[in-house]
Design a protein around this nucleic acid. Structure first.
Lengths: 210, 210
DNA sequence: AAATGTGAAGTTGTTCACAGCT
DNA sequence: AGCTGTGAACAACTTCACATTT
């Protein structure tokens, strides 16, 4: 029975908030201080009515006849998304994908700090061009505790994914970005976002046939 | 006015087809030949009514009182998804992510063959543990032509993404898996699936706050 | 005049209830 | 009896139309 007030905000609206945020940053960099829903919506690839509706889920931020204050909207969104302060993240499973994510500069840019990289056999993982040391799974609880980690990126093989997820949750993680192609079963209070490359490709494949 | 009959199939249903397919393969490996919508739905993490509805978008495949023939359903789905034969794919932009995808074994497993890897400066890309040679962008049209490539994975920096997408489309690509965090504008007949790591993280971040 | 905010209408997707096979 | 297939009810999300504010 938690997130009562929040549940009524469509999940898709929250995704769009991220898009708006990116567009707003571009506008800000171009020295633009005020933007109408019409213009921002176009930049984000949505209808202006949808943008306005999305924003009203969180309050009223515009000035009628004028539009929205770019800086203020950015503030508001990053507050609502919880990206105002650096969010600590661990990456578990340093195979090809895990390694790529470790050296992905985007994390820091978007307000996430990778505070740990873990693998069952850390020695196997040539850490590549990343400076982060890969640690064994035994260190996981320590690091999660020390940095108050709430978020994990899961790149282990599908066979290990559920077990590792269970561990993460036990140690206090409440949000998992799951790259393993299986359906994780987790308690209600844990949020899982799945990224499944094979599924995306198969989906595209469908649309190729006419 | 194309895909008239297909447009009415919800895109989400097509994604779920991929999930069902994976579950069915697991069942098949366990020597199970027949499955009810109830059981398969549970494995896929959906309601049984939804599974049945999804399948009826494509026809009738079950036997009342009995269930579905596992093998036959697998056949049907792979046919509808267009994964019966190997689908050729090119990867453009061999940075960290591109390199990871190049050495990702999942592609072949799921019916996709990477027939080319491209980058503006191929020499920069230490091809890592993959055996595939990285080629310069000039080779792109040749390879697309030679292998009848319809699908591309786009891993270039956001500033280059639109331009490269335009090229791909010009050369005949009609489906793009886009990792660049921008909204690509493409003609109607081209399908784009976006994967945006930052957005997924931000989205999770929202759910961490209670 | 210009642009937001929002109830109501419309659209899309999901679940129910049950008829219809095997 | 058991389980699929499906029209109808329902729920979620999007778009419209317009009242409201600056």
């Amino acid at each position: 029975m938690k997130k009562v007030a929040r549940t009524e905000i469509p999940r898709k609206a929250i995704y769009r908030l991220s898009v708006y945020s990116r567009c707003l940053h571009r506008l800000e960099n171009n020295g633009i201080h005020t933007v109408s829903s019409e213009v921002l919506a176009k930049a984000a690839g949505v209808k202006s009515t949808q943008l306005r509706k999305d924003l009203t889920y969180f309050g009223q931020f515009g000035t009628r006849g004028l539009g929205y204050d770019v800086k203020q909207l950015i503030e508001m969104i990053s507050e609502r998304l919880g990206t105002k302060s650096l969010q600590p993240v661990v990456i578990v499973g340093i195979g090809n994908l895990g390694r790529a994510l470790l050296s992905y500069r985007g994390f820091a840019q978007e307000g996430f700090e990778v505070v740990g990289a873990f693998d069952v056999s850390p020695s196997r993982c040539l850490s590549g061009n990343s400076s982060m040391k890969v640690q064994s799974m035994e260190e996981l609880p320590k690091i999660i505790d020390k940095h108050f980690v709430k978020m994990a990126v899961l790149c282990v093989p599908p066979t290990a994914a559920q077990e590792v997820a269970n561990q993460l949750i036990e140690y206090g993680v409440v949000a998992i970005l799951n790259f393993a192609p299986i359906v994780l079963s987790v308690p209600d209070e844990v949020t899982v976002n799945n990224i499944n490359l094979a599924m995306e490709l198969e989906n595209l494949s469908y649309f190729i046939n006419e």
